[in-house]
């Protein structure tokens, strides 16, 4: 990141002068506000921040951020971001996508961008429905979901964004919830600090076409019971006081146990969360935890280190210059066999 000290900015410095055109009550409002709140705390000059999106409700995001922004084409935002970041590694590049844009038409670009591990952030808003095209089932919609294009129920098995990202070899994978401002801000900061591609699934409510899909984890009253808040080095414990539960692994399978208030989870064999495990099997096991039998994990599921594409790209240029000297056009044109006619 740029070395110069950015002038102290506030949330307002990141609010564009454009009228926000999401539906009333859309989860995107909360995400936008939290992203705008986090930006001044990153220590990145505003002019170095770029938001790049594809197509869909979520992808209108860049228009509302007073940074550099590029609203591109359906599914391909990760590829545009790859070009921008590779061209100028000093930029702080944020991709905003949705479950349709990122996992349907853009699934391939998401895969390859994640595996290259460019130092960018990818925010995938998951509302399990196509909003902008007015309510068709998406790649994350549950089997049987009734929608305009699936009046008898969807017969597609859904893809899980977290499992997908892990399968792509993501070095940073996290999940947060649209209405949980504090948690989201923490996760966004962690994502920015991570060197490599940070993938964040943000659970987002669509009040018009899929209202209440995340209600049990969005509602403060039921959230503790239904979410497992991950902290590196801390045991996998969830539930409110008096109803604490823990997760342990038995024969490679997760299992929920009840914890008394004075139980030490470690002694009870509850798994200690470790983001840094090189093998993705633990993270993948976490990703399979689904309600109602298990709580939904939120927070940083995995953070490991790998080389970044844009750095290796620049290294190869340096290596070529070291070996051959800076490119000389005259020498290039005269390389190999030439002859002179007088």
């Amino acid at each position: 990141m740029a070395a110069e000290v950015a002038p102290k900015l506030t949330r307002k410095d990141f609010v564009a002068d454009q009228e926000v055109r999401w539906c009333p009550g859309c989860g995107d409002y909360s995400i936008l506000a939290n992203v705008q709140r986090v930006m001044p705390e990153l220590g990145v000059p505003r002019e170095n921040i770029v938001f790049i999106s594809g197509i869909g409700c979520s992808s209108r995001f860049p228009y509302y951020m007073d940074t550099y922004g590029f609203h591109t084409i359906h599914g391909r935002a990760p590829a545009f971001a790859t070009g921008a970041k590779a061209a100028n590694p000093n930029l702080s590049v944020w991709v905003v996508t949705g479950d349709g844009d990122g996992l349907s038409i853009g699934g391939n670009h998401l895969l390859h961008t994640i595996r290259r591990n460019l130092d960018i952030q990818i925010l995938l808003f998951n509302n399990q429905v196509y909003g902008l095209t007015k309510g068709q089932y998406s790649p994350t919609s549950a089997l049987g979901m009734r929608s305009k294009s699936s009046p008898q129920g969807s017969i597609d098995h859904p893809v899980d964004p977290i499992s997908y990202a892990l399968g792509c070899g993501a070095t940073f994978v996290a999940r947060t919830i649209d209405v949980d401002a504090k948690h989201m801000q923490q996760v966004l900061k962690r994502a920015h600090d991570h060197k490599g591609t940070s993938f964040i699934e943000i659970l987002q409510n669509c009040p018009v076409f899929n209202d209440g899909i995340w209600e049990d984890v969005e509602d403060r009253k039921t959230r503790a019971k239904n979410t497992l808040v991950l902290e590196h080095g801390e045991p996998l414990v969830f539930g409110s006081e008096g109803e604490r539960k823990g997760i342990l692994m038995q024969d490679g399978r997760p299992q929920v146990i009840d914890l008394a208030d004075d139980d030490d989870p470690k002694e009870r064999g509850v798994v200690i969360h470790d983001e840094k495990l090189e093998t993705p099997s633990y993270a993948s096991a976490l990703a399979t935890l689904t309600r109602p039998d298990f709580p939904l994990p939120v927070g940083v599921i995995r953070e490991v280190e790998k080389t970044c594409y844009e750095e290796l790209l620049e290294d190869q240029i340096k290596e070529a210059v070291d070996q051959k000297g800076a490119g000389d056009l005259h020498a290039l044109l005269h390389s190999g066999d030439t002859w002179t006619v007088s």
Partner: peptide
């Protein structure tokens, strides 16, 4: 698609 998209991204940058 990624080839041209990345190229436009680089041009933007």
């Amino acid at each position: 698609m990624a080839a041209v998209s990345s190229t436009i991204g680089a041009a933007f940058a």
